[in-house]
Design a protein around this nucleic acid. Structure first.
Lengths: 216, 216
DNA sequence: AACATCGTGGAGGTCAAGATCGGCGTGCAG
DNA sequence: CTGCACGCCGATCTTGACCTCCACGATGTT
């Protein structure tokens, strides 16, 4: 180990070598990668444009030649991450017609998303720029869209009213999202797939059998 | 005219009348109320100390004579709100020995919390200062503590291992928290108690009967 | 091999927002 | 009537972060 490390107070990150020149397209994606790392590690407000530029091994003007401002950069990354989870969620729901498998597949999507190396999920689930309407709209859209797709299935298969279906769907999304984040913070006490399966079991037991009223 | 009202950029809030003098203790609670309103409406970063002072009808120096800084003010409010939800959650769990009623009572706590007039829940569930460790610790503690109390019940009644109990409990908390926030945003399409009951039903169907494996 | 060109770098401007200092008015004791 | 104490305000300072201007060096051509 390069021990030490980890006091990320402000810089534990080593900038890339300073010299290289590179074509625009390639430079752009590299800047996006660097920005993602910094935003994930520090949050939006604590992240300085200097940090991002340094992290990429370039100076600030180049950064501004690729992106008009800090917010645009953030929104670009946020959009990518939002689209990723929504698309994966859609695919999971379409991957089978068995609802039990649907629940499991969707739960796995959330755990994979949270476990992904880059940590881009933090931009969506732990954003510190929710006061900005553009950000708020995108963040909310993740929950809303995922829940809406799930609600379609619930409504179709149970005949519950729209509002109830949506609310149930949102609660399943909340379950997935919060438990996945907590699982990640726990640091791997439970294997990823075991955790996803456990929570999927909980969700399926809850949702199956609607709209019959209940036990007694 | 006191009318005029307004254009504080985006505020429809009217400052309190400017003149009155007031004993320290009373002034302090009034400042806390004003600060809560502003933080709830704007978030931490967008909230300016000027806004809070204006909202209370005093000038900035007075504010600083009562609180050493912006963060201290925020943490005071945050602590109050965190303690409230945790205590209410504890009481709900202790209010009965029937687990089905426990689930319902706890779910109602979250919906009441979110529905409360002041909107203080936003400091906890929608904070934009998670990069600050003091804030992060308190926000996480709400989920952790609530889940821990629920996990005790789950572990006792099912014999599941600690990690699994905790994860299940956290997912229930996530379900409550996210669905309640979404319900509030929906603006009363469903009555508060109907929503809480609906989600409590989902949670109970999911959690009851553990640790039996599953369906068919 | 020498020159023109274009991208790069360090140093600086601007501005918003948190945090503070001398003066004012009011009420009370002597 | 007069001096004092207390709470309050307008005006200011400073910090920090976003965003651009003058020198340098590498690349492609003749």
């Amino acid at each position: 180990m390069t021990a030490g490390s980890t006091d990320t107070t402000s810089e534990g990150v080593h900038p890339r070598p300073r010299g290289g020149r590179m074509p625009r397209r390639e430079r752009r994606v590299q800047l996006l990668e660097s920005a993602l790392e910094v935003f994930v590690a520090q949050g939006y407000h604590a992240a300085a444009m200097d940090d991002i530029a340094d992290r990429a091994g370039v100076s600030k003007p180049v950064l501004y030649q690729h992106f008009p401002g800090k917010l645009d950069l953030y929104l670009a990354l946020l959009d990518t991450s939002c689209d990723l989870i929504i698309d994966n969620c859609r695919e999971a729901l379409a991957s089978t017609t068995d609802n039990r498998d649907r629940v499991t597949a969707t739960m796995r999507v959330f755990y994979s998303y949270v476990a992904s190396e880059e940590g881009a999920f933090r931009l969506v689930f732990e954003s510190d720029l929710t006061s900005e309407p553009d950000v708020r709209e995108r963040v909310d859209r993740v929950t809303t869209e995922c829940a809406s797709m799930i609600a379609d299935v619930i409504r179709t298969d149970t005949g519950l009213p729209d509002e109830a279906s949506e609310l149930l769907a949102v609660s399943l999304v909340g379950m997935a999202q919060v438990s996945a984040r907590f699982w990640l913070a726990g640091g791997g006490q439970i294997a990823q797939d075991d955790a996803a399966t456990l929570i999927a079991g909980l969700a399926w037991r809850g949702i199956r059998g609607y709209p019959m009223t209940d036990d007694h």
